[in-house]
Each structure stands twice: as structure tokens, then as C-alpha cells.
Nucleic acid binder design. Structure first.
Lengths: 131, 131
DNA sequence: ACTTGACTTCAAGCGTGCTTGAACCCTGAG
DNA sequence: CTCAGGGTTCAAGCACGCTTGAAGTCAAGT
């Protein structure tokens, strides 16, 4: 089975069919082929959606992701993708670093016996790490 | 000057005053002291807001952050904070890992001369890394 | 006294990312 | 044949995270 109905696809990627239709409507997914009026997706779409969700977690908006993926198939706009990617790389680095700091703070805070996150010694004024 | 007006605070943290009022309204910031009806913030609020923004970037909702910070000052609910934090730690790890994968993919993709992100060899079916 | 500018509250509005509902169509099983 | 379980479109609605607008207060400067 190399093609999926929208419901199957939705199940595979853990989303609702309505979300997939929405993605198509905003150009995140290409217009799916229709068989008897119904959308039929190649299995590769699963991968594409995984990419989309990943980028979304990374803080990209759907509009940005559309550009990243060149959903419109405009391969002439390659320069645009490079530009966008180059602009986003440092942002990604920053996001990762901040997440890492937060993660470590939460982890240590759990160990240090403090009452809550804010009162934790880790985050006391002296411990400023330029966030 | 150990206290800040809402406008000053907003400038310091790079947000609009309306956002700070909103944070107060949803319990993310405690009710600020009023002087002649106007909010006055201790400088420590800058730090608190930095935490909030950090957690936000990490994918926490404002409601979750409120719990994390025990904004209501309910120090009896410490167990809740531990529970939430323990539940969130693995999520944070997962987020970081996914971000890292995305970052590396984007970086390599920029080097590999592909036309766009999706067509990149890195992300070809064979290169599946269980995202 | 008057103006300016920053503040107040409250309600309504907005952008993003979907979901839901209504009304309809198709296919396959019983 | 019929009817259940998908699917379709289109418009409206919703939750989150704020912003904007209206109408008013207050303090300082000229």
C-alpha cells in the first residue's frame, strides 16, 4: 500500500484529518492527488509531515516552514531557502542553548530541595547566566 | 532605583506594557504593588520575566509556566511543582534532541548543495532517524 | 491653568493554527 | 437497497497570547 487516504495518513502522523486539509489549504502540503474526489497521499508525505512538526517545535511558523520546504515546488527560489536557512541557523542555536539551560536548571532544581523554580538558588541573582 | 514603573520594566525586558498587564491578569506575575494606582515592580521582576520567556521558548504554555513558578505563592503546592517538573524533564530532553537534529540537518543541507530542505539527501527515506 | 505623557480599567479585536458543523457525495458490506 | 463509514467544501468558531481603543486618572512642566 503505497498510497494513503487522509484518515490513514492522519492516524500515522497522529494528527486530525482536518489539520492535514488545513496544511494543504495554506500550501504546506501540495495539493494531493484526488481519486474519486478524495485525497490520496504518497507515503513520503509521512516524512514531510514529520519535518513540518519538527520545524514547528523549533519555533518556525507554518509560513516559514512553507518557505523552508518550498512547498510550491518553485525550485527557482532556491536562493530564498538558503537565505532563510542561514538566517534561522543562529536562532536555532540560541533556542537549543536556552532550552539546555532551562533543562539543567529544572533538573538541578529538582535535586536541590527548593520550594519552587523561582526561589531556587540556581536562579538567584548571583547565578545570572545572561539569558 | 529599586522599583520600576510598568513602562520601564517593559523596556527592560523588551515587551509591551500591555503584555505585562496581561501576565498579571492571568496570574503569571503576582499583583504588583500600586502607588497612586500605578503598578510598581521590584527589579527582581526582570529576572522572573526572563524565566517566563525562557520557559515559553521551551514550549511551555503560560498556564504551565504559572504552575512552574507557583505564581500564586502557594508554597504548600510544592509537590505539584515537583510533579510537573518531573513530567516535563523528558519532554525537554526530547525537544532539545529534536532541535539538535533539525539544526544539524539545516546546517548540512546548506553545505550539501541540495535544492531545498525536503529534497536533501540527509532527509531521504534511508536516512530515517526515527523523528 | 493647561497640556503632556504615562498610567489605569475594561471590552473588543487580531493572528496563528487548527476544529467543528452543516450539507452533501461515494463505496462497500449485508 | 440501504446504510454506515469514510470522504468533500465552506464558513464559522475556538484557544492562546497578546494588542488596541475608549474613557478616565494623575504628576510634572510651562
Amino acid at each position: 500500500m503505497r498510497e494513503l487516504a487522509i484518515g490513514d495518513l492522519a492516524r500515522q502522523v497522529g494528527m486530525r484529518a482536518s489539520a492535514l486539509r488545513y496544511y494543504e489549504s495554506v500550501g504546506l502540503l501540495p495539493q494531493a492527488a484526488r481519486v474519486a474526489g478524495r485525497r490520496v497521499y504518497p507515503v513520503s508525505t509521512v516524512r514531510r509531515i514529520a519535518l513540518i512538526r519538527m520545524a514547528q517545535r523549533a519555533g518556525f511558523t507554518l509560513a516559514e516552514i512553507r518557505q523552508l520546504l518550498s512547498a510550491d515546488g518553485d525550485h527557482g527560489a532556491t536562493g530564498q531557502w538558503r537565505t532563510l536557512a542561514e538566517r534561522k541557523l543562529p536562532e536555532l542555536d540560541r533556542s537549543i542553548e536556552q532550552l539546555r539551560v532551562l533543562r539543567d536548571a529544572v533538573a538541578e532544581c529538582l535535586l536541590c530541595g527548593c520550594m519552587n523554580f523561582e526561589s531556587c538558588r540556581l536562579l538567584a541573582p548571583g547565578a545570572d547566566q545572561d539569558v
